[in-house]
Simulated assay, not measured.
Amino acid sequence: MTCPVCSKETVHRFRPFCSKRCADVDLGKWLRGDYALPSRDPEDSERAAEELSRNNPETH
């Protein structure tokens, strides 16, 4: 098995990663939302548009 971040061989202690660094890189991607799936729920779209409108002073 290879590390999903750098493709080196995995190390049992950090499996499925090769090192703590690669595990931390992956965690950072999760926390930034890089692995988020887009929603098709219309209510989510409306909520996102409202939030953007509230947070963007140029639209007021």
Rank of each mutant, 00 (worst) to 15 (best):
T2G: 03
E46Q: 12
P42V: 04
A49E: 15
V5S: 05
R15V: 01
E58S: 14
V5H: 01
L37P: 00
E9T: 05
V25Y: 02
A48S: 14
C22P: 00
T2Y: 06
L27C: 08
V25S: 04
C18P: 01
L31C: 06
E58L: 15
V25T: 14
E46M: 13
K29G: 14
F17P: 00
G33S: 06
S45R: 11
L37I: 06
L37M: 06
C22D: 05
P4S: 06
S19F: 02
R47N: 13
L52Y: 12
C22S: 05
P4G: 07
R15I: 02
D24C: 02
V11P: 00
K29A: 14
W30I: 13
T2P: 02
D44S: 10
P16K: 06
E51N: 09
N56P: 01
D34V: 03
D34T: 03
R15F: 10
P16I: 06
D41M: 03
V5D: 01
E51R: 15
S53F: 12
N55C: 08
S39N: 04
P16E: 05
V25R: 07
M1G: 14
C3W: 01
F17I: 04
V11W: 01
R47K: 15
L52G: 11
C6P: 01
E58W: 10
L52H: 11
V5E: 12
P57F: 02
D24L: 11
M1F: 06
V11E: 11
V5P: 00
T59E: 14
E51T: 12
D34H: 07
L31H: 07
D34A: 12
E9R: 10
D34W: 02
A48I: 12
H60Q: 12
P38C: 03
K29W: 10
H12Y: 08
A23E: 08
Y35S: 03
S7M: 12
H12T: 12
E46N: 08
A48L: 15
L37T: 10
G28W: 02
